[in-house]
Amino acid sequence: MLQALREIEGGIQLSLNVAARAPRLRVAPIFESFLRQVYFTGVTAATGVVLRACGLGVIIIAVMMDMLDADVDLAVKILLLLVFREIGPLAAAVVVILRTGTAVSAEMAMMRVSGQTRALRYMGIDLYDYLVLPRVAGIMLATAALTLYVQFLAVLGGLVLSPFVIEASFTELTDRLFDLFAPVDFYYSVLKSLLFGFAIAACCCWHGLNPPDLTQNAVPKAVTRAVTQSAMLVLLINAVFAYLVFGILFFGLVKAPA
């Protein structure tokens, strides 16, 4: 219980510190570190998700069509509600946790255990400035970009390949998509993915900088905790966010009309 409270308190402190130091991103080595993080999290992960994202759209459409015997309208609604709003940000968050979360927490725990964080402090370099801020900002931005990329590919995959599964043409599906698409879908997913990125980065940085002890064995322990808690945080944010933003309206839309 005490450990959990300590982690919550640490997470809040870290988040406040990062928010207060945002202007420090202009400092050259911090900005370089930020760009490196965006590249690692966003660019190098992008190629790996192309097939998965396309497959995601098709599988969801195919399964839903088969189960619900749906028409074009429902197919596009499913693409928007499920793929765009929910699965897209979640899929991107999973990729970020697995690729970046593990790397960041392991790197930081290693730096802490080997005394490199101490060396930074001796050089008068603030750990929040140099290690935490660029990672949190970089991961937030990259998660949002990756989410948009996954959404685009999943929806495109769904639109291109669905005609092979259901009786609807590509143009029919695309026209309906543009009819039903609302800007709120875009804002909702961007905001949610930024929050996901923030939660993942803050959680992984905190566990990386606070390993259970200062031995080599602490590194895998810190990574395990970071990844598990990041995943739980993402699921929690997803549930709370969906309830707060859309509430009954959101769930009502999924219901089949009476």
């Binding site: 400092v27 050259a28 080595p29 911090i30 790197e107 290693m110 730096m111 080997s114 005394g115 490199q116 101490r118 060396a119 930074l120 001796y122 050089m123 008068g124 370099i125 400035d129 140099y130």
Partner: peptide, 23 residues
């Protein structure tokens, strides 16, 4: 050894880090 090098930066980045950070 207490003020070691940062392992994910090359030698130049290590040498320049304090100057780049403090301006």
């Amino acid at each position: 050894p207490i003020v070691g090098l940062i392992t994910n930066l090359n030698a130049w980045e290590n040498i320049a880090l304090p100057a780049a950070y403090h301006g």
